[in-house]
């Protein structure tokens, strides 16, 4: 399906650059990145530490402004959208899973998952609770709904974070080394979940990782080296997402 020329990309990145400016020093980190991602894809972003993966994900997640270039999502040039609009866009269309879970410690697992929907007024309490309960069930945490976030193990926290990222049914989930902070067992669980959810619901994932196991499960691998796209490989064996459904 990625080769289908008639299909418009969900995310289209065109000539993105990013310079970090520290004092008088200008450090170019991204040096012209271009690629497309299509709805339902499961894409890995590989590359050595310091190559600019996190920076790129932050820009695509609308948390950071690029220095030059454009990226389009759902037909919008997000480099041209104002702060308020971007915030709303982020809430509706983008889910994040970071290396550290970043759950709200004073809220329960269920409340954390409900948060993006109820706090923005997207869903009412009943609807949100139903969906959050379903999602927590999906990540295997039905028995931990009312646990305070601080009372959960590392793997459990990351699974809550995944459920939270899926709460508003986003078009794109950006995950930055989601297993980087977990033991092998928990990492494996989270990885399984990511691939399964992609296969079941067709949610599009862009996952930055060092982990060769994750990479081998992806349909495509984008390798970034020194701020440039080094290679884009398609993995012919892997079938996920809408194509597999």
């Amino acid at each position: 399906m990625t080769s289908d020329a008639t299909m418009t990309a969900l995310l289209s990145v065109a000539g993105l650059t990013k310079d970090y400016i520290v004092g008088d020093l200008v450090t170019p980190v991204l040096k012209g990145i271009s690629f497309d991602i299509y709805t339902g894809e499961f894409v890995a972003m590989l590359g050595p530490s310091g190559s600019g993966k996190s920076t790129l994900l932050s820009i695509l997640g609308t948390l950071l402004k690029p220095t030059a270039g454009h990226f389009f999502m759902l037909g919008n040039d997000l480099t041209k959208v104002g702060e308020r609009e971007l915030t709303k866009f982020r809430n509706r269309n983008i889910g994040f899973v970071f290396q550290y879970h970043h759950l709200l410690p004073d809220f329960s697992a269920l409340e954390n998952v409900m948060f993006p929907a109820v706090a923005s007024g997207l869903m009412d309490d009943v609807e949100a609770e139903l969906r959050a309960t379903m999602l927590l069930g999906r990540v295997g945490l039905s028995h931990r709904l009312n646990y305070k976030a601080t009372k959960l193990s590392g793997g459990q926290k990351q699974r809550v974070a995944l459920a939270r990222a899926l709460m508003n049914n986003p078009a794109l989930v950006l995950t930055d080394e989601p297993t980087g902070n977990l033991d092998r067992e928990s990492a494996h669980q989270v990885m399984e979940l990511l691939t399964e959810i992609n296969a079941e619901s067709g949610t599009t994932f862009l996952i930055s990782t060092h982990d060769s196991e994750i990479a081998s499960r992806c349909q495509r691998k984008i390798t970034i080296i020194d701020g440039k796209v080094d290679s884009i490989e398609t993995n012919p064996v892997v079938q996920h997402g809408l194509a597999a459904a």
Partner: peptide, 16 residues
């Protein structure tokens, strides 16, 4: 600070 950051990343406005 980090909670505020995560709320903002989840699409909560500055006003929120």
């Amino acid at each position: 600070k980090s909670e505020i950051g995560i709320m903002r990343s989840m699409g909560m406005t500055k006003g929120f």
